[in-house]
């Protein structure tokens, strides 16, 4: 798949080309949206909004190669906008009940174990602040590079690295503390 050619086509107004670009990495987008939104329904809403925004703004993309980095930034922004609109606070208590039901069909593994692990990591991440949590999630759960994380969170690479380092350090301290108990 030639990304650059497809982006150029999309720039000329081809909806099909844009769709092809997104579908090629649909799982990555979906997981990213899911992390922010917390449920399948809202994640798909965010992706809908993203694709509309992409279509409207693809002219502004200067470097075709950077399409995926750019589109992920837009996806996260869409997620954050939606969250702000809903003023939705994803509580850990809700997570169990909603996720098990909604995520259930998407998970290939045993849902109980999966949600257990999911909850576990969310619990763990409660010990770091929001920004560190976001950076850690993007880095370790979504395997994004520093530049993309920096774009998404709208800060410099140095800040991203420092957030991840500080977050990890905090988690390690906490974990050790847990073990000691």
């Amino acid at each position: 798949m030639n990304v650059v050619r497809l982006v150029k086509k999309a720039k000329k107004g081809s909806k099909e080309a844009l769709l092809q670009l997104i579908m090629a990495e649909k799982d990555v987008y979906y997981k990213l949206a899911l992390t922010y939104m917390g449920n399948t329904h809202d994640a798909m809403d965010a992706m809908e909004e993203m694709i509309v925004r992409l279509y409207e703004k693809i002219d502004q993309l200067k470097k075709e190669e950077a399409f995926y980095r750019w589109s992920k930034t837009i996806l996260v922004n869409s997620c954050k906008t939606l969250l702000r609109k809903q003023k939705k606070l994803v509580l850990l208590d809700d997570w169990n009940t909603t996720n098990e039901r909604e995520l259930g069909h998407a998970l290939t593994r045993d849902p109980y174990i999966s949600s257990d692990q999911q909850m576990d990591i969310q619990e763990l991440l409660l010990h770091v602040n929001e920004q560190q949590k976001e950076a850690l999630q993007l880095k370790y759960l979504h395997d994004l590079d520093y530049q993309t994380i920096a774009d998404i969170t709208n800060v410099s690479i140095g800040t991203v690295k420092s957030r991840i380092f500080q977050g990890l350090k905090k988690l390690r301290d906490h974990y050790r503390g847990d073990v000691d108990e």
């Binding site: 979906y30 809908e48 370790y140 759960l141 395997d143």
Partner: peptide, 26 residues
């Protein structure tokens, strides 16, 4: 634990109806 969580997340795939929804949104 992060790696385990990653493995879990990796196992998630986008729902089938996603493409339809995106297409209609477009």
């Amino acid at each position: 634990r992060l790696a385990e969580a990653k493995k879990h997340i990796d196992s998630i795939t986008a729902p089938e109806e996603l493409e339809m929804r995106l297409r209609s949104a477009l």
